[in-house]
Amino acid sequence: MASGVKPRVKVPKTAAAGEAITIKTLISHRMESGQRKDDEGNIIPRSIINRFTCEFNGENVVDVVLEPAISTNPYLEFEALVPETGEFKFTWYDDDGSVYEETKEITVG
């Protein structure tokens, strides 16, 4: 699954100090549940994103455990506090050991 996985993140470019901002994330991933069978009747092995984290300047915002009941192309929306100018780091953990990362800068003015 490591190929063709594409993360998308929506973060405002600027914020006021201490402002609450909305963050939206989406990653292209089949989220194979492990419940389905192929045409020959064999179980298709589970292959999902099982964890997502968001940090700002090294400090945790959210840490999410995802299970197979999360839809294909997992979507997550939450709110973060921005105390100062810095960088958001988003990390998705795949069952196959792959880790996908994305970062976004935000300026506090």
């Binding site: 609450a20 901002i21 940090e55 700002f56 400090e59 945790n60 915002v61 959210v62 840490d63 999410v64 455990v65 995802l66 299970e67 009941a69 999360i70 939450f78 709110e79 973060a80 506090l81 921005v82 105390p83």
Partner: peptide, 10 residues
């Protein structure tokens, strides 16, 4: 899913 909210969750 389980959501854990950190120090900077607004």
């Amino acid at each position: 899913a389980t959501f854990k909210f950190g120090k900077l969750a607004a």
